[in-house]
């Protein structure tokens, strides 16, 4: 099993890659001036319309990786290309959904969904119509005029997601988006993401530390080592789509994959405890 997974091939199909990440390195200056290497040497690629999950022990640099790939942070070494061109700064082609609640608390749900279009100068009537359509699809009808504090965690997350969808990005990054939700809400959100992805396929890079979530949602899972991170292994998720989260977890393929990834990760966590 380990033979193919130990050596991630940058591109499995013939289609040109959407993202190619080559030799990415990054270090932070810690308190006291010493340098902490976060990303040691990361290389991988993402195909168009692929749903890739990135899993790794906590604090391994997953978020740093996503911040570099979104153009928020410049890498100290290595490069990221998007459609063959070097990524430079923030691009509207990427929608970023973060772990923290990033809704504007003084805007209603609807006004939050409209924000991205507003920034791009979409006329009011048009953006309102599109935002209402997304609100309807996200099953938030009746809550469009509620302020974020009046919404539940799951509802806020859905607003956060459609806020990004409203800008129609071709690529979506998600950084542990459901980490703060309870298990039932999280499962509902996973079903929601699956249905969204089924409806309009986009390239998705999804960071999580939840194996079940990674297997449920993605086509391919990259396992990162502990800090400083390398791509340790790569696993293809051959579960058929459309998937139903609640049924998947009793599927033998699912259980088998879960076990294999678990062992990969176990090594990382154990080594860390020894060091």
């Amino acid at each position: 099993m380990k033979d193919s997974s130990q050596h991630p091939s940058p591109d499995a199909s013939n289609a040109p890659a959407k993202f190619v990440v080559t030799g990415l390195r990054h270090a932070f200056v810690a308190e006291g001036g010493s340098s902490v290497s976060v990303l040691a040497d990361i290389s991988f690629s993402v195909r168009p319309f692929e749903f890739v999950a990135v899993v790794g022990p906590s604090g391994c640099g997953k978020s740093t990786l996503l911040n570099i790939m979104s153009g928020l942070l410049s890498p100290q070494a290595g490069s990221v290309t998007l459609d063959g061109r070097k990524l430079q700064g923030i691009t509207p082609r990427i929608g970023y959904i973060s772990q923290s609640d990033s809704l504007l608390p003084w805007r209603t749900a609807l006004a939050n969904v409209e924000l991205g279009m507003e920034l791009r100068g979409v006329p009011k009537a048009e953006r309102r119509e599109r935002a209402m359509e997304l609100v309807r699809q996200a099953d938030l009808l009746g809550f469009e005029n509620a302020y974020p504090y009046q919404l539940s965690g799951g509802m806020r997350k859905r607003v956060d997601i459609i806020k990004i969808l409203a800008m129609d990005p071709e690529i979506i990054f998600m950084d542990e988006p459901f980490a703060s939700l309870d298990i039932f809400t999280r499962e509902m959100m996973q079903a929601y993401i699956l249905s969204l992805w089924q409806a309009t396929q986009r390239t998705v890079l999804f960071i999580t530390h939840d194996l079940t979530e990674a297997i449920t949602l993605s086509d391919r899972i990259l396992i990162l080592t502990r800090r400083p991170a390398l791509v340790k292994a790569e696993h293809l998720v051959s579960l058929p789509r459309p998937r139903t989260p609640a049924e998947l977890r009793f599927d033998p393929t699912f259980i088998n994959l879960h076990k294999r990834i678990w062992i990969d990760l176990q090594d990382e966590v154990e080594e860390r405890q020894h060091s």
Partner: peptide, 16 residues
């Protein structure tokens, strides 16, 4: 800070 980063990632200009 989270909101600032999120809005910046949405492509907002300094003025916005």
């Amino acid at each position: 800070r989270n909101i600032l980063t999120a809005v910046r990632l949405m492509g907002a200009s300094q003025g916005q």
